[in-house]
Design a protein around this nucleic acid. Sequence first.
DNA 1: GGCCGTTAA
DNA 2: TAGTTTAACGGCC
Length: 414
Amino acid sequence: LGNINLMSLNDNKAGMTGLDKDKINRIIQAASKGSKFYSKQQENQTRIDGQIAGLQERMLRLTPTQLLSAQHEADLYIQNLLDNIDLTRTLVHVDMDMFYAAVEMRDNPTLRNKPMAVGGMGMLSTSNYAARKFGVRAAMPGFIGKKLCPELVIVPVNMQKYAAVSQVVREVFREYDENFAPMSLDEAYMDITEYLELHGSNSWDVVQEMRSKIEERTQLTASAGIASNTFLAKVCSDINKPNGQYVLPANHADILEFVNKLPIRKASGIGNVQEQLLKSLGVNTCGDLYLKRGEIKLLFSQLSFENYMQISQGIGGTRLEPREDRLRKSMSNETTFKETSDRNILIGLCEDLSNELAEEMKREEIFGQAVTIKIKSHDFYTKTKVRQLTAPTNEADIIYSCARQLLVSLLESA
DNA sequence: GGCCGTTAA
DNA sequence: TAGTTTAACGGCC
């Protein structure tokens, strides 16, 4: 049972349906088998299997009385959600299509009809649709991509270029919502409620126009989702990718119908592990979250319960946080290097990272109250150690001396 | 408060 | 040969 989910293609991405998953997974397995990374993944999966077993055991012990009472509590919680539902806002999620790859294809026409990806042999950031047909996708090592598709062209990342394009795209976003919320270089939420009131137009046409503007100014396409909250808008932006849009009407009947058949993994925040845990309880769609509300109430934390119930009702955020409220809480800097046990090399790297970090902090005029060091060993085990500073700082030597001590103590404890 | 794990892009 | 980087947050002890 344990290895079913191990090292297989995650096809939860546009352009990845109808693939020969078995063949792709065999290639991924063959390329992974016996590696340290694979062993670590196996260990992780074993831990998850343990969690699942524990969950099953606890589920079997639930009495009908407990379940009935938990269902009642869940119903009260959901009723309260529905009483306070806000369907008055129009949220848009816009996502550039295969962003980095699209920029590279735009600038180098010889790439346009070839399977290509942006990244390196170590890791791919994104791939075009021709490559996705082979199972090559973001977050896959380049050498595995090459095994899946030997003719794959891998273009190195050019972050400055993507950042510049992103500026242009964000200017378009700003025209529709001054307070738009960027999630990354290629993706943002907008609340166009006020824009629609002001211009007396409908959301479909406005978003169509927004996407046209993006294409005119960048020669790149974007996809968009329109819905009454951010959770739904995000799911919708994926539906007609690439170069498409989808609108989910702002009424609870349509929303429920939409969400009832939506696979849980499509909900932002539910990843591999939560998907496995929920599936072991028989929860495959967001609608199932409601059917199993009693079990969920009894088996998960209050916070998870509330999150799942909101998802089951298609409820999500309706207000974007103003920029000034989105304060950064940490800043970090890490690098992967050739394996070594030479302390001097490690300490040297620690110093470089400390210096770079301090530089970035000064650029942003921010101060840190604690220093955390993280080290990953050759077998992919990660350890972290943190220490509070006596006073906030962005001085390289203070950060470095603290980081060095933490590093040494980590190395000694290992 | 410290550390680990999960998620996302 | 090769399996990232950065940020945020929840759970647990």
